[in-house]
Design a protein around this nucleic acid. Structure first.
Lengths: 330, 330
DNA sequence: AAAAATCCTGAAAAGGTTTTCAGATATTAC
DNA sequence: GTAATATCTGAAAACCTTTTCAGGATTTTT
């Protein structure tokens, strides 16, 4: 059995209060007792039981992360940022993924209740309000990449709309007029925003958006591949395909190459996210660079600052994105 | 403040013991009290405090996952499997990544002590014994993809050696004699095993391994790209490049294409892992399929069975891999 | 030298649950 | 009708800390 504070007290010949005081350095203690306690603790290999601690303080030192799913490079990179920031701030991380229905989400949040001090939630299929309604109360939130409807939410997101707007404008400036667009996951906030940016850019450039040029996707490579094959069956073939993320775009590249088309001459292609694969695609993929890792660190930092200061004013932060034009759309 | 068991007892007009008995269905309770307790609990929205529970039982319902780093599709997929299995078994997940030094690892394990019931450790740079030596005792382990030295370890791995052996044999059977090999992360268990499989297959086919054909990599795309450029500077150019994983192989494809070579005619290329990107590379990448998701579920299942049965005999499980030959090496 | 202040220390309560123990009530057996 | 059993219930201990409270010892002030 692991040593308890009582064992240390016994060995050092002092009361448990004194042990606690020495270990937490919370009150002055006579030097001789201090050293006796310290050596006793060391000899016994004593570590305070975090469970007992948090029963008393009702703080846990943990942060929960709730994600809709994890796939591809985007999430690895995001988790990287989250974990780094959490370690720096001395929080441990609980993680739970694959929440699509609000039932799932509710269950996940309930299972984290009192095991964490706060929650990082990515719920692209819901609004911040809807999520908060499901949560056990008193649990502070920070939202990532989630639609905000109230004005008192904490969150970090990035400029989905502006990024796709800029990329569309780029293609138009290269002379493209007939542009196919492959959407992301249906009903997802970021996917909607990206589509909205695209459509607005078309309009602002005097191009009428056409339904027949919008193709359903779901952010993965296979979906991009299949959607692109549908694009190629159009009578009047577009000169460019915009995918809603890099994974889809890689599927698009694959389909185009199989069809014997050259990129970007026969067809320009663009992605979104700028994961590492975009740079090493053939040809290198034009994409919208998203600071994914920073998205993770910023979210943790915001949550921690909220935990440390209950008065902290709500903040919605939108990280800027950046066009990275490469060979696939030159 | 959230309701406690005392509030429920008060409201139902019974003792807290009775409430506990009703909620855990642990002893017979008179029907009238039972319904009173149930409705009181419901009205107050009572949920037992898991902290208080685990202080008493010293069980947490949690599993810790310790990873060296997370990057690329491999880890997303692995986490997917882990999370799914954990949810099915009603465990929550603590995660901690980026542990390279044993100091890091020790700290991570210490911070999980008593917050989890068991640990899933992926430590390709260490042996199972070395990890166990750093751990607070009494914490059950399951190792993933880690070198085993003792015969009482629990773990799941996959056939790194055999996969690369088979892939090398495949290339030899296609007539390749001069094959460049790009290694994975230095000193990592899986990287060493893959190299070993490659070298053994060469020997078994009467080909002498050459040092000049082994190039240092680290599993990422850029490393593959750069290593491939070094390959291309060889006077006597190889006819094939084997990368230690798919990410590196994608970097290789990119470098070869930039150099104007056609694949597989000028140069065959192979990967390892068979992540989704392998299928959608151009040309589609020959790879060794690893059941990554299953790796995650198998590890959790093994750990849970160990937690449920202290007598459980140690088990090292090696999942089979499978050659997937595609256009890059035909 | 007495009073006041300072410093250190231990006992005990608190946090929320589960479980043991023993008591009370109701039921069965003779 | 009494004794023995079965059934249900509550009080209290236990899990391991931190923190409050009050007491004792020492030092400082007058």
């Amino acid at each position: 059995m692991a040593a308890t504070i009582r064992d240390v007290a016994l060995k050092a010949g002092v009361s448990i209060s004194t042990v606690s005081r020495v270990l937490n350095d919370t009150c002055p203690v006579a030097d001789d007792k201090r050293v006796r306690v310290e050596s006793a603790a060391k000899e016994l290999g004593y570590t305070p039981n975090p469970v007992a601690r948090s029963l008393l303080s009702s703080e846990t030192g943990g942060i929960g992360i709730i994600l809709p799913f994890v796939s591809g490079e985007f999430f690895s990179e995001f988790l990287n940022g989250v974990d780094q920031a959490a370690q720096e701030q001395d929080f441990f991380l609980l993680i739970s993924t694959s929440h699509h229905s609000s039932e799932d989400l509710k269950k996940a949040m309930a299972s984290m209740y009192r095991r964490v001090d706060g929650l990082l939630v990515m719920a692209p299929h819901m609004t911040t309000q809807a999520v908060e309604a499901l949560a056990p109360d008193g649990l502070p939130f920070v939202f990532v990449n989630t639609e905000v409807v109230s004005d008192d939410a904490f969150g970090v997101t990035f400029d989905n709309y502006g990024g796709m707007y800029a990329m569309t404008a780029h293609l138009v400036s290269k002379g493209h007029r007939r542009i196919a667009f492959i959407t992301g996951t249906e009903n997802a906030y970021d996917a909607r925003e990206r589509l909205r940016g695209h459509l607005q850019a078309l309009k602002d450039n005097g191009i009428a958006p056409l339904d027949e040029l919008i193709f359903k996707g779901n952010y993965d490579q296979r979906a991009g591949f299949e959607a692109c094959n549908r694009v190629l069956r159009l009578e009047d073939r577009p000169t460019a395909v915009m995918a809603s993320n890099d994974d889809s775009a890689i599927g698009v590249l694959s389909a185009l190459r199989q069809a014997g088309l050259t990129i970007p001459d026969d067809m320009a292609v663009t992605g979104f996210d700028d994961v590492q694969s975009a740079q090493f695609a053939t040809p290198p993929l034009s994409s919208v660079h998203v600071p994914v890792r920073q998205l993770g660190t910023a979210a943790i930092d915001l949550l921690v600052s909220r935990l440390n200061d209950v008065q902290r004013a709500p903040q919605m932060r939108t990280l800027p994105v950046e066009l990275r034009i490469r060979g696939s759309s030159k």
